[in-house]
Simulated scan of single mutants.
Amino acid sequence: MITTTDLTKVFRADGRETLALDGVDLHVRPGEVYGVVGTSGAGKSTLIRCVNLLERPSSGSVVVDGRELTALAPKQLREVRRSIGMVFQHFNLLARRTVQQNVELPLELTGLTRRQRAAKAAELLDLVGLGEKAGSYPSQLSGGQKQRVGIARALAGDPKVLLSDEATSALDPETTRSILELLRRLNQELGLTVLLITHEMDVIKSVCDSAALMRRGRVVESGTLSDLLATPGSELARALFPLGEASVEGTLVDITFQGDSAVQPFISQLARTYNVDINIIGAAVETIGGRQVGRMRVQLPGDFEDNVVPIGFLREQGLQVEIASGARVVEGAA
C-alpha cells in the first residue's frame, strides 16, 4: 500500500545542508498497522510528511495505492491526497468552529451540500465515540477527545491510508491506550492501512503489526514484529522486550517464544529432564496481533560446552535461542 524507494530529503538553510532522510526504503502492506520508531531527530516526522508530499523528497520515489506520488502533477496529487488521512500530534483544530464544523472542514472542498456534510460528520463522530459532542468547541474537550475529533476529520475523505504523526505523545497513558484501541478498531473495521510515527516502544508493542527503527535518517531495521522477535540480535526485539542486565557466572541464554510455544512449560520440562538448576533473570510476555509472544533470559550453570544438550532441547521445542554470554562460547554458537 505504501512503498518508499531510496527516499532522500535534504534541508537547505543559511548555506547549510541537513540530510534528514538518507535512502529510506519502506514497505507497508495493505491493511496493516506499521510503526516507525526512533529518537528525536531520527527523521521520522520528515518521512511521514514525505509520504503524502507535504514535504517533497529531494530524490527517490513514494508509491501509495499503486500511484507514484512523486511523479504526479499538482492537480493529480491533490486528488490522491483525499485517500490519505493524517492525524497530528497537536490536534490542529480550529478554536472558533464546533466539533462538527471541524470535521466538516475537509468536506467543504468536495462539493457536498451542507446537509450531506452534516450527515457525514455525524456519522464519523459516532464512529470515534463523540456523537454527543458535535456542538461543543475544542476548548471544552479533553486532550483525548480533541484527538478523536482529529481522527474523525482525517477520515472525512474515506481514506485508504491513515498517517499518524506522534498522535499520542501529548496524551496521558490511559488516554493513549484508548486512542490506540480506536486506531486498531478503525484499521480492522474500515480496512485502513495505518502508518504511525512514535518514539514510544509501548505504542509499537500494543498496536503495530510491523515496525521500523530509524536512526540518523536511515531505516536500520524493519519487519513484522514476529519476524523481528525471531531475528538474533534484533535491536527492536530487545527494546520491545527488555530483559535487563546481570553479572552472573555460567551461561546466559535469551529465549524468544510465540504462538503455541508460548504456552508450553519448557522451563520446568528442561529442569526435570536434565536435572539442571535454572535461574530466570528477566522475562516479558505480551499479546501482539492476537498471539502471545515474549522473551526470557535465563542462567544455566557452567560454560556453553556444558549446556549444549539443554540448549538443543530448547531449540527442539520451536524456541528461538541466543547465547547472551558464557565462558568460552564457541564461534557461531548463537
Rank of each mutant, 00 (worst) to 15 (best):
E181N: 09
S206R: 12
G150D: 08
T224V: 13
R153M: 07
S178Y: 10
T193E: 06
L186I: 04
S169Q: 06
L162T: 10
T175C: 00
T224G: 14
L162H: 11
L195S: 02
L186F: 05
L190E: 09
K133R: 14
E132F: 04
S169A: 13
A167Q: 06
A230D: 10
E221M: 07
E174Y: 03
L229V: 15
E200D: 11
F241K: 01
D172I: 01
D202W: 05
L163S: 06
E221T: 09
S222H: 15
S234W: 07
A134Q: 15
Q145R: 10
E235L: 15
G233W: 04
C208I: 06
E174K: 15
S206Q: 07
Q147N: 14
P138R: 13
L155P: 13
A237Y: 02
S210P: 02
I179K: 03
A239E: 11
A170P: 13
D227E: 09
G217D: 12
T193N: 04
Y137D: 06
K146R: 15
S226R: 10
S234R: 07
A134S: 15
K146P: 08
V203K: 02
L225D: 04
Q140C: 13
E166L: 01
P173F: 02
A211D: 00
V128K: 03
L182G: 01
G131D: 00
L196P: 04
D227M: 05
